[in-house]
């Protein structure tokens, strides 16, 4: 698995305090959780005990506990408590790999290349921004940029500019979106979108309806691509 740079995982607003959620990048599973201080953590989504997904677990204060047997891990990924052995001094080796996280452009990003590395590089994202919506679609991440223009907004084709291999700028009538594309797994992608400036909630509704149509169009196009590649 080759991970390079920073990967968008979800909108900042979509993981609440003391909540955990799972995600995948190129098929590899990660848990994203927010502690009681509001800090976000991205770890491998696996309890070292029995391999249970930590994203099914629950956050208590600054610990996340595995749903299966309640093993509790601190913010450093270190197991601190094993309910079945309450008096045990937990070995330092029971630890979950964790990754650097930043929140930028209303999106949570993580870097999987060098766990626990120094400060992340500056991300060129509009700030302030206004988190909008994530869509998940059965469509290869690599094909998204070229397909977005085929879903008009108010009868006009969006103007799409690639800012990097995973950040797109989408200009729609009355609003510009930054879309961070996540390669979830083969044939499946997520796109986390934010407006480049504040937009009142009620004004976001037409864009939300457009995003839903975009997802349908992406999936139809992906099916057609698959069919034509199969035929070829």
């Amino acid at each position: 698995m080759n991970f390079e740079g920073w990967y968008p995982l979800l909108l900042v607003a979509d993981v609440g305090p003391k909540k955990a959620v799972g995600t995948r990048v190129q098929g590899k599973e990660f848990v994203l959780w927010r502690d009681s201080h509001g800090s976000t953590h991205v770890w491998e989504d696996r309890c070292p005990h029995r391999g249970m997904k930590m994203s099914l677990g629950f956050v208590r204060g600054d610990h996340i506990a595995c749903l299966y047997h309640g093993w509790e891990y601190d913010r450093g990924g270190q197991c601190q408590y094993i309910p079945a052995h309450p008096d045990l001094d937990v070995p330092q080796t029971i630890k979950i790999p964790r990754y650097p996280v930043i929140e930028a452009g209303s999106i949570v990003w993580a870097c999987f290349q060098e766990p626990d590395s120094e400060l992340p590089p500056f991300l060129e994202l509009p700030s302030p921004s206004c988190g909008f919506k994530s869509i998940f679609a059965d469509c290869p991440a690599s094909r998204v940029a070229e397909l977005i223009e085929k879903t008009p907004f108010n009868g006009v084709a969006p103007k799409v500019t690639a800012k990097s291999d995973r950040v797109l700028e989408i200009v729609l009538e009355g609003g510009t979106l930054t879309a961070a594309v996540q390669d979830v797994c083969e044939g499946h992608m997520a796109m986390h979108m934010s407006f480049d400036r504040f937009k009142a909630s009620a004004d976001q509704i037409p864009y939300s309806i457009w995003a839903d149509q975009l997802r349908r169009d992406l999936e139809t196009a992906a099916r057609d691509i698959k069919t034509s590649e199969f035929a070829a």
Partner: peptide, 19 residues
Amino acid sequence: SRDFNIDHDEFPALRRWAN
């Protein structure tokens, strides 16, 4: 939904509503 193997990861609004 996890009983039939659909995770909550891709449904942010449903997660919020369920909470």
